[in-house]
Design a protein around this nucleic acid. Structure first.
Lengths: 246, 246
DNA sequence: TATTGACTCTCACGTTGCGTGAGACCGTAA
DNA sequence: TTACGGTCTCACGCAACGTGAGAGTCAATA
């Protein structure tokens, strides 16, 4: 496919495709003798990934790092996308609620604090680090700090909220069996998430799960999302690690 | 409130507030003798509006035009916000569905066309909407969007089904003459349908029909119901408009 | 065959919406 | 009165393209 066709298909501009070529983010697989860019189906799949991340507010540089990472797993990435998108929708819900409240407020029906007025619009004020320190203790945070520090505020916020999303999902499943399909799928998201921040081979993942139960600080903060969640996660993580390690 | 307080409350940076002051988008109501910016509650309300529009992707210049317009109606604006946010969420739903489909696709369970792969990613550059805004102005399009966005999922599904029904009926008639009684009756239903969503004077209706043929994206999607349907509809719509316009 | 007219290419500068210091002043708590 | 954090105004930097300019390409048509 030539530039124009790709542009029409995806809704982005020709200039944008040129730009992505320039910075090496999306280099077309082929060119005609005349120098026309020719995009393959693989290029299109890659572009889809790029647009996913762009929509989520990642910088092009960050996107390049992500998709060119050899450990980049398409399937896990897609599942991460899904949870990030869901998180974004949740934020939109907050904003919609804020608007509706404001409308009511204008009708004089209720009162709003200034803080309420901005609920859902609070993107850059990032609870990630504080919460993470609370949740995992300082060492764990320091370890992943290198990676996280390289991210933009938006990316960090997205991550922190995605973490909450996974916790909530797991909390909702915690009465099921840890080796149930749903539980394993959710814990797989958690695994993918952790591997965005650091490198966790299955054994480390399993050990981390054990720590959730052994270290009461972990237990306490995890169980905020639901009584017994830490134990459930430990078990699910163990099953996951055993199935995926060799 | 001083800059820092506003920044903390809203999650935007001090620099951003300075910037908004510089460009005259949000000038604080007062200053101390030392030159410190002092933001009033009105300023905060205005900032809320600004952030609404910003989140929706408007440029700061556009936002300035909007909020400084004397005819700017806070309540209507808020209701428009709500519907635009809901529309955005709907697009997010599309994207989530696309991701889920892609995940299934990776599992080899279903196949996807290239077009499907990009559904939901065609945001502001939506050619239909842009064109419609150019031709009939913003209010008509916004109102139509608002109406559709304000519907429940079920209602939207029902609407979509009704639209398809009319298309099918028209497709069945497309070999007849565009000014035949049957054709004119069916196109009349189409006219009624459109007027349920927005306001289309006969001339706009005629123009819309022309667009079905001029813009190949329209043509393609309409002709899915039958080869030549777009052309047939344009002709029938022109006849209808001529007969019903004054 | 020549000529459109739509498409593509590569520079290269312009624009938006801030980020990021630098250097100076303000305010209050010890 | 000295420290220390908040605030001010320049002013340059940067990402992600937009927007021509000028030139080559390609298929259809006169």
């Amino acid at each position: 496919m030539k530039v124009r066709e790709v542009a029409d298909l995806t809704g982005i501009s020709v200039r944008t495709l040129h730009h992505y070529d320039e910075i090496g983010l999306l280099v077309p697989d082929g060119t005609t003798e005349a120098g026309y860019r020719l995009y393959s189906d693989d290029n299109l799949a890659m572009l889809q990934q790029i647009l996913f991340y762009r929509e989520l507010g990642f910088s092009l540089k960050a996107i390049k790092d992500i998709v060119s990472d050899p450990s980049f797993n398409r399937r896990e990435a897609l599942e991460l996308h899904r949870s990030l998108l869901i998180e974004k929708r949740r934020r939109l819900d907050d904003m919609i609620a804020t608007v509706e409240k404001t409308i009511q407020h204008h009708k004089g029906e209720i009162t709003m604090t200034n803080e309420e007025k901005f609920k859902g619009f609070d993107f850059s004020r990032n609870p990630y680090e504080e919460e993470a320190r609370r949740r995992w203790g300082n060492e764990a945070v320091d370890k992943s700090n290198a990676k996280v520090a390289g991210m933009s505020k938006d990316e960090q916020t997205a991550l922190g909220e995605a973490v909450n999303e996974i916790y909530r999902k797991l909390a909702g499943l915690r009465t099921a069996s840890p080796d149930s399909e749903q539980a394993q799928e959710a814990i797989g998201e958690w695994y993918a998430m952790l591997n965005r921040m650091g490198s966790y081979p299955p054994q480390a993942f399993k050990g981390l799960g054990q720590m959730y139960v052994d270290d009461e600080r972990f237990t306490a903060s995890i169980d905020q999302f639901g009584e017994g969640l830490a134990v459930f996660m430990r078990d699910a993580m163990a099953v996951f690690a055993d199935r995926h390690g060799q």
